[in-house]
Structure formats: structure tokens, C-alpha cells
Amino acid sequence: MDLELVLAVVSSEFTDLPDAGEVARIVIRLLTAALLGGLLGFNREKHNKSAGLRTHMLVALGAATFVMVPQLAGMEIADLSRVIQGVIAGIGFIGAGTILKHHDEKEVFGLTTAAGIWMTAAIGMACGMGREVTAIISTLLAWAVLGVMHKLFEARDSKKDTA
């Protein structure tokens, strides 16, 4: 085996990283996606929900990768919109798997988890497209909805129990 040939092949396989700036861009986008997904996942895990920290981090990271790779490869926005549609549909399918309907028609569980996974994918896509500020604002709003609304419902339910 010719070592020079092997090194040339290895070198040619890593041509999608033309410079340190591009490497930094990729690392920042993916790291931001994972961290923001982790914020939402931490909230869900703290409340013992089925989709927790790792799930949300992976969903955000995957969504970011799905939109970032074609974008960095020069895909037109019209074509990229089909990738985004595919991610949304796929995540919807995963989210649907978290929804459980019990025998009582009024008893449905997992809707917030499904919506959280869907939101996490949207945040990941925003990161992957280089819209980190939008992703951060969206994460803070989602985190507030999950945290504040949970506390409001707990307070309301505790008042019902004492009445």
C-alpha cells in the first residue's frame, strides 16, 4: 500500500473544511445547537419526562447538521426548504411517538414533550443556518413557557386540592 496515496485520499476527503474560519463556524453552530437543546432537555429531565437532556441535545444537533451541511455546500434556499420540510416532518413523526392516549378520551399524555422536541428541532435548524440569536431567543421563550407555565399550573392545582 502506497502511504502517499492513502494520505492524498485522506486529505481530499477533508476538503469541505477550507480554512480555520469555516471550522470555527461549524463548531459554533453545532455547539450552540447542542447547548440550547440541552437547556430545554434539562428542564424536561428535571420533571422526569421521557425525552430529556440527551434526546433534546441530539435532536438539536441533528437538525442543525441536516440544514448546515447542504447550506455550506452551496445549496440554494429553495432546495434547502425541502430539507427543512423533511426535518419538520421527521421530527413530527418522532414527536407523535411520545403521545399516549389512555382509555379515557380526555386523558392524553406527551403533547408537551412532542411540542418540545419539535421546538428543539426548530432551534437546531436556526443554529445550523447561522441564526444563533434567533435560536437563543426561541430557547429562552420556550424555556420560560416550560418553566413558568409549569409553576402556574402547579399553583393552580394546589389551590384546587385545598379548596
Rank of each mutant, 00 (worst) to 15 (best):
residue 27 V to K: 07
residue 7 L to P: 05
residue 80 L to N: 06
residue 6 V to P: 09
residue 76 E to C: 01
residue 93 F to P: 04
residue 21 G to T: 07
residue 132 E to Q: 13
residue 59 V to H: 04
residue 56 H to M: 08
residue 115 A to P: 07
residue 161 D to P: 09
residue 18 P to I: 07
residue 40 L to R: 06
residue 131 R to N: 15
residue 15 T to Q: 13
residue 106 K to R: 12
residue 79 D to G: 09
residue 106 K to S: 13
residue 35 L to G: 10
residue 34 A to V: 05
residue 66 F to R: 02
residue 3 L to Q: 15
residue 6 V to L: 15
residue 90 G to H: 03
residue 144 A to F: 13
residue 156 R to T: 10
residue 56 H to I: 05
residue 15 T to W: 03
residue 36 L to M: 01
residue 138 S to D: 09
residue 105 E to R: 08
residue 72 L to S: 05
residue 106 K to Q: 12
residue 110 G to N: 11
residue 156 R to F: 11
residue 87 V to I: 14
residue 10 V to F: 12
residue 135 A to T: 04
residue 142 A to S: 12
residue 27 V to E: 12
residue 111 L to K: 06
residue 38 G to C: 09
residue 5 L to G: 13
residue 142 A to Q: 05
residue 118 W to T: 06
residue 19 D to C: 08
residue 109 F to P: 06
residue 154 E to G: 09
residue 98 T to D: 09
residue 128 G to S: 07
residue 71 Q to R: 10
residue 155 A to M: 12
residue 157 D to P: 00
residue 74 G to D: 13
residue 24 A to L: 14
residue 93 F to N: 06
residue 84 I to Q: 02
residue 92 G to S: 14
residue 83 V to S: 07
residue 147 G to I: 12
residue 7 L to D: 15
residue 128 G to V: 01
residue 16 D to S: 13
residue 12 S to N: 13
residue 68 M to Q: 00
residue 78 A to I: 11
residue 94 I to E: 11
residue 87 V to Q: 08
residue 33 A to R: 01
residue 46 K to R: 12
residue 52 G to P: 05
residue 74 G to M: 11
residue 3 L to T: 14
residue 106 K to C: 05
residue 111 L to S: 08
residue 10 V to S: 14
residue 81 S to I: 02
residue 126 A to D: 04
residue 63 A to Y: 00
residue 20 A to G: 10
residue 64 A to C: 00
residue 36 L to Q: 02
